[in-house]
């Protein structure tokens, strides 16, 4: 096995396998230094490089060739070299460029978050909140498209799309028989199901999960509820479809399962793809084996309505045994 190579990202050292991209090396470090990614999806081959939000500065190319790279590079595409030094949050140039990219992504985005089903779990919303400016300098009409139904379960609202191409790769790689692609070019480009032919495939529902914005939404969930009012629960079932993992998140409102999605990790990527039967048809609690409440990031708006202890109760704090039990239960440190 080849030797591991050393990289420094924002002053933090890590050793990774050769061939790792800067973004994945940063994800191994975790925390602040991970560049945001709107189009890269580790489970989809060929994705990435398009949105340009993950741009970073390479201030030292490698041990052998210490010259810095002349331009900012897309960290999801650039492989690490031994001794490479990368600046992400520490470089004002990167932050400035990223702010520019966020602005570009938003100029043709309708900003209809109040009526968008994705609000609360939207990558673009999070990105704009963290890296964008408060106002817009764009004073022209935004592009508009009509809503298109892709089959009876999925709706495409192209106006919201940021053309990350993730759904195209999903259609290409996860479903069999691709009927999904990009039409036209420039800012007139649009996602198409090849002349509006509906996607009819067992795995087509995954395009909803990979969509970073609210362009592809679940018609069985549309306008049912805000995500932060629902309660996510991990569950699984033995799916008849051999390609489907059957591991899902059920989103409850009271006793009712409002929707079923794949399990998304902290970077908004599903752990495994699920089939349409699991996603759209199994909406009763007794279809599933419940595993327990879904852990949601503290920063997410979804966790804001759940009972979370900010501080340990004094009685727990004094008793190490209770403390241990508590930590086991919540799978995380409570301060």
């Amino acid at each position: 096995m080849a030797d591991k190579i050393k990289v420094t990202i924002d002053g933090q050292h890590i050793e990774v396998e050769p061939g790792t991209t800067i973004l994945n090396a940063a994800r191994q470090i975790g925390g602040e230094s991970v560049p945001p990614a709107m189009c890269y999806y580790s489970k989809l081959k060929g994705s990435g490089g398009k949105c340009r939000t993950c741009l970073v500065k390479v201030s030292k190319g490698s041990e052998k060739d210490p010259r810095p790279m002349p331009k900012l590079v897309a960290s999801c595409q650039t492989q690490v070299m031994d001794g490479m030094e990368v600046e992400n949050m520490t470089s004002p140039e990167v932050l400035e460029a990223r702010k520019g990219v966020v602005e570009m992504l938003l100029i043709n985005h309708p900003l209809d978050c109040p009526v968008c089903d994705q609000a609360g779990e939207c990558d673009l919303q999070n990105l704009a909140y963290e890296h964008g400016a408060a106002g817009t300098r764009y004073e022209f009409e935004r592009r508009k498209f009509n809503k298109i139904n892709i089959g009876d379960k999925i709706q495409l609202h192209m106006t919201r799309c940021i053309l990350c191409y993730r759904c195209v790769y999903t259609a290409d790689q996860i479903t069999d028989g691709r009927v999904h692609g990009i039409l036209n070019r420039g800012d007139k480009a649009e996602i198409s199901t090849y002349i509006a032919q509906a996607i009819d495939n067992d795995f087509s529902g995954n395009v909803i999960d990979v969509c970073p914005v609210g362009a592809l939404t679940d018609k069985t969930f549309r306008f049912k509820n805000r995500v932060w009012f629902t309660k996510p629960v991990d569950a699984h079932r033995d799916c008849e479809n051999p390609k489907c993992s059957g591991k899902v998140v059920l989103w409850y409102k009271g006793e009712e399962v409002l929707r079923v999605t794949g399990r998304k990790d902290q970077y908004g990527e599903v752990e495994s793809f699920i089939c349409n039967t699991c996603r759209f048809d199994k909406k009763k609690t007794n279809d599933w084996v419940i595993e327990g409440p879904r852990q949601i990031e503290d920063t997410s708006v979804i966790s804001s309505n759940h009972y979370e202890m900010e501080h340990m109760l004094p009685v727990v704090e004094k008793d190490p045994e209770l403390m241990e039990q508590n930590q086991k239960m919540f799978h995380k440190k409570i301060q």
């Binding site: 490089g49 398009k50 949105c51 340009r52 939000t53 520019g100 990219v101 570009m104 992504l105 100029i107 043709n108 764009y138 022209f140 940021i162 053309l163 191409y165 990009i182 036209n184 070019r185 420039g186 800012d187 007139k188 480009a189």
Partner: peptide, 21 residues
């Protein structure tokens, strides 16, 4: 350039149109 941008990456897709306007 607005007309000819391929629309793959965001700065060019959105920025060329913005400049033109």
């Amino acid at each position: 350039y607005h007309h000819e941008s391929c629309g793959q990456c965001s700065p060019c897709r959105e920025g060329t149109g913005w400049m033109e306007k």
